[in-house]
Structures are given as structure tokens and as C-alpha cells.
């Protein structure tokens, strides 16, 4: 019998500071044991519990794509006691993770369709996974449009990679910041407003929205206004979590557990659960 509560060992291979406040750090982890690496199969949208012995656990979305086979990437915002300790980690340190957990963005269903990805702030992690995955399987998908908003230009994560994507002609990157800033010649305005301006066509199109709750709350009505059907809109939810396998009972919204039934839900599914909003 396997024991899901026992973490597997990972080594911190690379750390990158994402913002001037040093509150966001990206960690590339590599497997310590070859066997664990072989058994670890995941899809964009899934998450792991980081497990620091003596400190506790915290769930984070996987920012790398399964097509990137050498490492697992996570971006962690320093918020609570566990994330604070995570920020003290140095390259070469060993930590534990449990996972992969949860469901994933329905990339199989998206095949042959256009995909609009709407993200905000540092919740761009699993969206990066999704984008990298689709770019790696580029011919399976139609137009890919990314609308990504941050409060200020320096608060976008994965800036170098986004610059690379901007140079490509097979993906449309639309960045927006909340207020005009010096040296910024991109869009300004909140994500919902910018989504309305861009007004992506609903024709054979799927939408994935992930960001702070307030952004999701105001973006969903815009998408409905643009006539996207509820079962064409996907989002990823978060709740406080412990076990990650649907036992400990704290991450539920109605009958659904974010850790096993989610974190990815369609708007059609969420509309049946009053607690989701």
C-alpha cells in the first residue's frame, strides 16, 4: 500500500527572485531519487504539497510543464510561516513534496480549439505550465491569446520568458498594468476591462481564468457578457488544505473537494455550488 502522507525528496536547483520586494521567489526542484522522478507524472494545473519537516506543509501549483522533464518549477509568495521558511531556502537544500495532486486544465478537450488565457498577479504559475505545454504541442491548438495583468510592470512573473513569447507569432500576449507607469507602453487597466476591450471571439474558443479572487469575480461576468458559455470557461480555485487527498475535510466547496475534484472547475460546475463564490 502506498503512503501518500510521506513526502518525496527534492533538491532546490535554482532560485530566482521575481519582484523588487523579494516577496516572490521561483524554485526549480530536481528529484533526488530516480524512482520518484519516474513515478511523477503530472499535467498543467495540478499542484503539490511542499513538505518542510518541522515546519509543515503548503500547497502550490506546479509552474513547470510536463514537457519540461528535468525539473519542477514553483513560484512562492512569502505570506505565512511555511512560505517564510521557503524563502530562506538556498540552492542545494533538500525539501519534501507530495503530489502531484488534483485535476488539471482539460488540454485534451481544448485540442482543435482556440484558447484564451487570462491571468493576474503571481497566480500565473499553472497558467505558465499550460502555455508552455500548448506551445510544445502547438499544432494541436488554434489561436492562443494570453491576457495577463499585474499591478505594476515589475510585478509580472517570468518576465524573460514572456518577452520571448512576445517575439513569437503563434501566441498573442496582451499585458496590462493597473495604472500608467514610466517606461510602460503596453496596456493599462484592470484585467476585466482589458478583456472587454480585447473581446476575444467565442468561436470554438475555451477560456482559462486564474488570478486573485477579486479578478476572477469581475472577469467572469465580462466573459458571460462576451457570450462565452459557462462550460467553456475554466478557473482554478484555492482553499486552505492539509491532506491533499480528500480526507481531512477542510478544502471543500459544497460536496466538492478542491484537492481532488479541483482545483480546476468550469464555471458551469461552480454555478451549482453556492459556496464557491
Amino acid at each position: 500500500m502506498s503512503n501518500t502522507y510521506i513526502p518525496i525528496q527534492m533538491k532546490v536547483e535554482r532560485i530566482e527572485i521575481e519582484d523588487p520586494d523579494k516577496a516572490l521567489r521561483t524554485f526549480d526542484l530536481v528529484f533526488v531519487n530516480e524512482e520518484d522522478k519516474k513515478n511523477f507524472e503530472y499535467m498543467p494545473g495540478q499542484f503539490c504539497e511542499w513538505s518542510l519537516l518541522g515546519l509543515g506543509e503548503s500547497p502550490f501549483g506546479i509552474a513547470s510543464s510536463p514537457t519540461e522533464t528535468d525539473f519542477l518549477r514553483f513560484t512562492v509568495s512569502r505570506t505565512g510561516s511555511v512560505t517564510n521558511e521557503i524563502h530562506y531556502l538556498r540552492e542545494g537544500d533538500t525539501i519534501g513534496i507530495r503530489g502531484p495532486m488534483g485535476n488539471w486544465y482539460p488540454v485534451e478537450k481544448f485540442k482543435g480549439g482556440n484558447v484564451v488565457i487570462i491571468g493576474g498577479g503571481f497566480a500565473f504559475t499553472t497558467l505558465r505550465s499550460l502555455i508552455v505545454y500548448m506551445l510544445e504541442h502547438r499544432k494541436d491548438y488554434g489561436d492562443i491569446t494570453v491576457i495577463y495583468g499585474a499591478r505594476a510592470p515589475e510585478l509580472f512573473i517570468y518576465k524573460d520568458e514572456i518577452s520571448e513569447w512576445q517575439k513569437r507569432d503563434d501566441i498573442d500576449i496582451q499585458l496590462t498594468i493597473d495604472n500608467p507607469a514610466e517606461g510602460w507602453d503596453g496596456r493599462t487597466g484592470f484585467v476585466p476591462t482589458v478583456t472587454k476591450e480585447i473581446a476575444p471571439s467565442t468561436e470554438n474558443t475555451w477560456v482559462v481564468v486564474c488570478g486573485p479572487p477579486i479578478m476572477i469575480k469581475f472577469t467572469l461576468p465580462v466573459l458571460s457578457e462576451l457570450k462565452f458559455a459557462d462550460d467553456r470557461i475554466y478557473t482554478s480555485l484555492e482553499r486552505r488544505m492539509k491532506c491533499g487527498i480528500g480526507k481531512c475535510g477542510r478544502c471543500n466547496i459544497g460536496s466538492k473537494y478542491i484537492c481532488i475534484d479541483g482545483p480546476v472547475f468550469s464555471l458551469a460546475e461552480l454555478k451549482k455550488i453556492p459556496e464557491a463564490f
Binding site: 509543515g56 506543509e57 521558511e85 492539509k242 491532506c243 481531512c248
Partner: peptide
């Protein structure tokens, strides 16, 4: 049957989950 998971002991030392 809801439960919490907590670590007892210090980081890097002896402890239990």
C-alpha cells in the same frame, strides 16, 4: 473526521508529523 496536520519538533532536528 476532519483533521489537522502539524509538525512537532524543530526544523532539521528530531520531530514528528
Amino acid at each position: 473526521h476532519c483533521f489537522d496536520v502539524q509538525d512537532e519538533g524543530k526544523k532539521g532536528k528530531k520531530g514528528k508529523r
